[in-house]
Amino acid sequence: MGFMDSIKGLVGKGQELAAEHSDKVQGAIDKAASLADEKTGGKYSDKIDKAADAARKVVPPKE
């Protein structure tokens, strides 16, 4: 098994775990965005919101 195969396997496992716990991941994204917005004094709110939205799309919510 090559290095890239190992990486692909780890990424696959990560995606599976994220899907199983998407509600917790979504909550963590929200908390991280809120904390970043607070620490920057709202100066980068639009950029933080865009980054959080992009992160949410990677791990869709449970159905």
Rank of each mutant, 00 (worst) to 15 (best):
G2R: 09
M4F: 13
M4T: 11
D5T: 08
D5I: 05
D5P: 00
K8Y: 12
K8W: 11
L10P: 02
L10G: 09
V11H: 07
G12V: 07
K13Y: 11
K13D: 14
K13T: 14
K13P: 01
G14L: 11
Q15T: 14
Q15Y: 10
L17A: 14
L17H: 08
S22F: 08
D23G: 12
V25H: 05
G27T: 03
I29F: 11
D30N: 10
K31R: 13
A32S: 12
S34Y: 05
L35Q: 09
L35K: 08
A36K: 02
D37W: 00
E38M: 00
E38L: 01
K39P: 03
K39G: 00
T40I: 01
G41W: 04
G42K: 03
G42Q: 05
K43W: 05
Y44R: 10
D46E: 14
D46T: 10
D46F: 06
K47F: 07
K47N: 09
K47A: 14
D49S: 14
D49V: 07
D49Q: 15
D49H: 14
K50R: 14
K50I: 03
A51V: 10
A52W: 02
A52D: 04
A52I: 03
D53K: 15
D53P: 02
A55I: 01
R56Q: 12
R56D: 08
K57I: 03
V59Y: 05
P60K: 06
P60W: 07
P61H: 06
K62N: 11
K62L: 12
E63H: 06
